[in-house]
Design a protein around this nucleic acid. Structure first.
Lengths: 344, 344
DNA sequence: CTTCTTTATGAAACCGTTTTCATAACCTGA
DNA sequence: TCAGGTTATGAAAACGGTTTCATAAAGAAG
């Protein structure tokens, strides 16, 4: 394997000169530069990343830290798209992306020491669900920049994070339904333990208030994210006197159950009740009728989190930042506005 | 940041001794060993991975190479599970997993040189869909072990690969239906450009032959993997004189379309026609009726590919291997055997 | 024609490990 | 008692880069 010495010898210069050529040092003359580049090409030379890393004290590596056992992070159908966004930015900057799994690594003595003191990474991106004060302290003590994927929950410290604009997403869902002449908008699947759910409900309320519609607590149903709970919650709404004419579902799984409940009651979608959900996934498009969704751009979430991380690496003193990414509506059969249901 | 020298000084020994202690060299006396371990703990020392890598000429890193723009690899809902399997094995061996995207990296001069000559990786795992002769040559020339995720298509070279046992999966689907007293088993969504599809059809034929049932080419319908094509293919079968009493769908998406077609014809599932599909995904469980599937264990696929790779790294001369992972049936509503349809 | 600056280059130290080779201290058996 | 072997340790070279400092050559200013 050709080393920088071999290149130096072949080009008839010193290793210093070769190093400077590679790193585009301006003090190299054009002729020398070309001699060196030719030698590099002839020998098919590529710099040894570990030697480079050792001498420049930079691993040129970013870590994506996940927890496979945590459903909210790794086992999320969106996750690979987030990763794609991160990966794109990381490689553009000539860094490497390493993926590490907390639950695998926790069996080791100390993950962060291994990762950070071991000089394996220059920065970490990690889902908010695995962040707690201990993690923040560990990262801060090691002086390692990090960005949270998602708004952190109940954390005293301020940290850097990127998230979908869930509040706006909640507003967007309601405004969309109101624009379609709906009067009673329900919200099912609210989960007070999830920040994103809290934000979406905030948006729901804000949109109603803004539209001078009284908030009816009876239209908010709490529940977990499953089709069974979706069915149960929708049934609960339908058993009341004053049923809603539209429903915002916290998730696609919930909307599947809710749709079945509505159909079982002999009501038509979207004529009698229209349905909208968050988090566009393949499922929303595949079931029948297909579900209108508020789409989140998780690729962009990845891109922005990586960009934020590089900013922190480059300018260490930067103040903590929060970045929100906007959403958009994707209209499907559960809310077709002209009140005609489409065929398969 | 504490280095090995600091530890040596604190323990009152040489760096050699510290290094030996870390690497469990048997020639270190118990007392010395304990002195060193104490110093390591006191200083909160972790070895610098790049220095270690440089001197031992081992990056302790495995690369998962994907192509985001290739639907068959990265944008596959199973992919993160495969990754999880790989990750588990990789970190157990104290290696790092780096994820690299071909299409991002191809914009660079030469991905493999950057990765391999740059001493960034000891081995590569990559989906068969991005393997061609050029890739194989590149890896072989660089003397870098690699394992293909999936049986390679039309490749002259023999290489190491791990795949789902698709032939057996095809047999399994047919045997399952025959055991349920079905007589005419159709197969829709056959795609001759996909190895896994070819294998599954082989299994289908083998199971029929083995059961002394004549093969009827009219029961095989070719088509793409979409719900629209599933609908079309099923309709084609239903328009014939002698319709099937059961159908094997190449994929979940196809089964969704097929189910709709059967229902539109006024036939009952599973009473009149039972449906089975491959590749258990969330969708199979969520749609109505839920689809019985031949389940593939993609986590295991990841585990085995990583294990194979480490074997190649440890014993370079090993002959090329092919490893097949078995499948199992998951019974759901489209094939309930007692001919009673379940509720939601 | 000096002296001072700029430009282009190289020698050598350094980054933090592993590993080879040397050696001191201790045992073993004749 | 001493040759020979074992055990425990350390000094120094090596890995392949980057960076500091020194310097020769060339140009500019007086």
């Amino acid at each position: 394997m050709a080393s920088i010495k071999d290149v130096a010898k072949a080009a008839g210069v010193s290793v210093t000169t070769v190093s400077r050529t590679i790193n585009n040092n301006p003090s190299i003359s054009i002729e020398t530069r070309e001699k060196v580049l030719k030698a590099i090409k002839d020998l098919n030379y590529s710099p040894n990343s570990m030697a480079k890393g050792l001498s420049s004290n930079n691993s040129y590596t970013i870590t994506l830290l996940v927890n496979v056992e945590d459903e909210k992070s790794f086992y999320n159908p969106f996750f690979y798209e987030v990763m794609h966004g991160i990966e794109k930015v990381v490689y553009e900057r000539e860094y490497c992306l390493i993926v590490a799994n907390l639950s695998t690594m926790l069996k080791k003595e100390n993950v962060l020491d291994w990762l950070i003191k071991g000089k394996r990474t220059e920065g970490v991106i990690l889902p908010s669900s695995i962040i707690d004060s201990r993690m923040v302290k560990g990262l801060r003590n090691n002086n390692i920049p990090f960005v949270s994927l998602g708004e952190p929950t109940s954390l005293r410290e301020t940290i850097n994070w990127v998230d979908i604009n869930n509040r706006k997403a909640g507003e967007q869902a309601v405004y969309y339904l109101l624009d379609d002449n709906r009067k009673r908008v329900a919200f099912i699947g609210y989960d007070s333990s999830k920040v994103f759910s809290i934000r979406r409900l905030e948006g729901y309320k804000a949109a109603l208030e803004n539209s001078k519609i009284n908030f009816d607590a009876g239209l908010i149903i709490e529940g977990r994210n499953s089709k069974e709970d979706g069915y149960r919650m929708m049934k609960a709404l339908l058993n009341k006197n004053d049923i809603p004419d539209s429903v915002v579902c916290a998730d696609n799984l919930i909307s599947i159950g809710a749709i079945r409940a509505i159909q079982d009651s002999g009501l038509l979608i979207p004529q009698d009740i229209s349905v909208i959900s968050f988090d566009n996934s393949q499922i929303a498009e595949l079931i029948y009728p297909s579900v209108s969704t508020i789409n989140v751009d998780v690729f962009e979430l990845g891109v922005q989190s990586a960009k934020m991380l590089f900013e922190l690496i480059e300018k260490p003193g930067t103040r903590d930042q929060e970045l929100l990414i906007s959403t958009n509506v994707e209209e499907r059969e559960t809310t077709i506005r002209n009140n005609q249901q489409h065929e398969v």
